[in-house]
Amino acid sequence: MFTSRPATGSLAASIHNLHKQYVLGGETVHALRDVSFDVPRGDYISIMGPSGSGKSTLLNLLGCLDTPTSGNFFLGDLDVAAIDDDHRAEVRSTLIGFVFQSFYLLPALTVVENIEVPLLYSGRLDREARQRAIHLAEQVGLGSRLGHRPTQLSGGQQQRVAIARSLVNDPRFLLADEPTGNLDSQTTTEILELLDNLNKEGRTILLVTHEPEVAEHTKRKIVLRDGRVQIDERMRPC
């Protein structure tokens, strides 16, 4: 049974007292300790911190790729931490969009086919879906590259495909893990402008980065250290 609470329409997500522990070599590692914060709809948050601070663990929990040891993670009125693996996979494929540093495009597929992949997994691949994929390709500036394969694209173009793919299911929010980490400075600027524009259109974005200049694009900065929230700073209005 799902754990729920009264819907809070202004929030995309809400994290309450998340803890995550691992046992490695007989020792308990506290990857996250009592992490709590709300994510208003339309927010643009950078998550920062040194290596080992808990950034990747938090991203995995928010992306429904892992479960917390204790605590709650609400998407709307649904407590994702309390649901089973099958429902978690459904949430992951329909409510969350992922953008990764390494793109993870399928080399045998064209631009438009790569964008359609989440629709294929969710059983929603039809004629209307193809038009949506084409529209998203055009939105990220790849309308003239629909039939190209990843090896025929630059790194920046591949990341644009990955961003379009993350949007195709119209997710509740985007999780971006070092999305500019493999890009040169000019392409980094272009990708950040694209993310900025998506946020201006109302998309909620959580972005993990170690680069202060990337974080400067966001409206809010959360800094982790030793698994705890050390700083939660609002830089611009949501």
Rank of each mutant, 00 (worst) to 15 (best):
R5M: 13
R5W: 04
P6F: 01
P6V: 04
P6M: 08
T8A: 07
T8R: 11
G9C: 02
G9W: 03
G9I: 06
L11T: 15
A12S: 12
A13S: 13
A13N: 14
S14E: 15
S14F: 03
I15L: 14
N17F: 07
L18K: 00
L18E: 12
K20L: 04
K20I: 02
K20P: 01
G25N: 15
G26F: 07
E27Y: 07
T28Q: 10
T28S: 05
H30W: 01
A31G: 04
A31R: 09
R33A: 09
R33M: 03
R33V: 12
V35P: 06
S36R: 14
S36L: 14
S36K: 14
F37H: 11
F37Q: 09
D38W: 05
V39T: 07
R41W: 08
G42R: 03
D43A: 13
D43W: 12
Y44G: 00
I45G: 09
S46M: 10
I47V: 11
M48R: 02
G49I: 11
P50G: 14
S51Q: 03
S51P: 05
G52F: 06
S53D: 01
S53L: 10
G54A: 04
K55S: 10
S56F: 08
S56Q: 02
S56M: 07
S56R: 12
T57Y: 00
T57M: 06
L58R: 04
L59S: 01
L59K: 00
L59Q: 04
N60A: 12
N60L: 11
L61H: 09
L62H: 12
L62A: 13
L62Y: 00
L62I: 14
G63Q: 11
C64W: 12
C64H: 14
L65C: 11
L65Y: 11
D66H: 07
T67P: 10
T67W: 06
T67L: 10
P68W: 00
P68N: 04
P68H: 03
P68S: 04
P68A: 01
S70K: 15
S70F: 02
G71V: 04
G71Y: 11
G71P: 15
N72D: 15
F73P: 04
F74E: 08
G76F: 03
G76K: 08
L78I: 14
L78F: 07
L78V: 12
D79R: 05
D79P: 02
D79Y: 07
V80F: 00
V80L: 03
A81W: 06
A81K: 07
A82F: 01
I83Q: 12
I83H: 10
I83C: 10
D84E: 01
D84G: 15
D85T: 08
D85Q: 12
H87C: 00
H87F: 00
R88N: 03
A89P: 00
A89F: 02
E90C: 02
V91Y: 06
V91E: 06
R92V: 14
R92I: 13
S93I: 01
S93G: 10
S93W: 01
I96G: 06
G97K: 15
V99L: 02
V99R: 01
F100T: 02
F100H: 03
F100P: 05
F103A: 10
F103N: 05
Y104V: 08
Y104N: 15
L106T: 03
A108G: 08
L109Y: 15
T110L: 04
T110H: 06
V111T: 12
V111Y: 04
V112M: 14
E113K: 04
N114M: 09
I115H: 05
I115K: 11
L119Y: 05
L120G: 09
Y121K: 05
Y121Q: 07
Y121A: 07
